[in-house]
């Protein structure tokens, strides 16, 4: 089957976000950016499916600025076949991204779209579900284990109460959770090889997608910070403080 994996360039997960003084958003100048960690898991799963012979072709797609090409290259260095880059300098809402992915998935004839359950920047967790609805495809959210079958895929899902297994008829969407796999590091030869893999560039306009935002950002602020408290010396002192000072036990 043909597998499409959307990948997003985000602020690296180890970097603490800083709000811009004018409260319009988070400052992304001169900070380390990387592939959204959940998307990395999706890329790894697609490459494993290709190695196992269940995926026939794997395509990485990214919607973002010129530098999003680096994120696509990372996916190609991990082993994916080729890339599609939808270039835009706007910070698009998940709805607009889902519409763009629909145009790409239809053009490519994708049968499985593997994607991160959420991007760690805006934390919407909405793109996968939105895309599935626009395609009228079933979805397996928060995948812990995948088992591709004949025209179907079985998804073990991480849910609030434990684990749930569902079978989806293909074509389908699967969103990844943390335990699905451990993404590989790209080797140097593979990084070199990835430089020669094709990346096709298009714009949202080329695809005829309306990207008008549905929400207005009024402001973005720093959250209240917690002050560090006291260091206690013994367990007995801790219990005393919790009981008599904080009154929580």
């Amino acid at each position: 089957m043909k597998v499409l994996v959307p990948v997003k360039r985000v602020l690296d997960y180890n970097v603490k976000a800083r709000v811009k003084p004018d409260q319009t958003g988070v400052d992304l100048s001169n900070v380390k950016m990387s592939m959204n960690p959940f998307d990395e898991i999706a890329v790894e799963e697609a490459v494993r499916m290709q190695e196992a012979g269940t995926a026939t072709e794997t395509i990485a797609v990214s919607v973002g600025p010129a530098k999003a090409q680096e994120t696509i290259r990372t996916a190609l260095a991990m082993g994916m076949d080729r890339g599609v880059h939808i270039t835009t300098d706007e910070d698009l809402e998940p709805l607009a991204v889902a519409k763009i992915l629909k145009a790409v998935a239809e053009a490519e004839g994708a049968e499985l779209v593997l994607m991160g359950k959420q991007a760690i920047d805006n934390d919407y967790g909405a793109t996968g579900g939105m895309f599935a609805a626009l395609m009228d495809w079933p979805i397996g959210q928060y995948a812990n284990t995948l088992a591709p079958g004949e025209g179907t895929i079985e998804v073990k899902r991480e849910i609030d109460g434990g684990l749930q297994t569902v079978t989806l008829k293909l074509p389908a969407v699967v969103t990844t959770d943390l335990r699905l796999n451990e993404p590989r590091y790209a080797s140097l030869p593979n990084i070199m090889k990835a430089k020669r893999k094709p990346i096709e560039a298009k714009t949202p306009e080329d695809l005829g997608v309306d990207t008008t935002p549905r929400l207005t950002i009024v402001k973005v602020t720093e959250p209240k910070t917690r002050e560090a408290g006291v260091i206690v010396e013994t367990v007995a002192e801790l219990v005393d403080k919790l009981k008599n000072e904080a009154g929580v036990i």
Binding site: A17, V26, D121, L215, T216, I217, T221
Partner: peptide, 12 residues
């Protein structure tokens, strides 16, 4: 947003 390191105020 950003793991709670920022708060976004949005309206429809």
């Amino acid at each position: 947003i950003y793991a709670g390191n920022a708060l976004a105020y949005v309206k429809s």
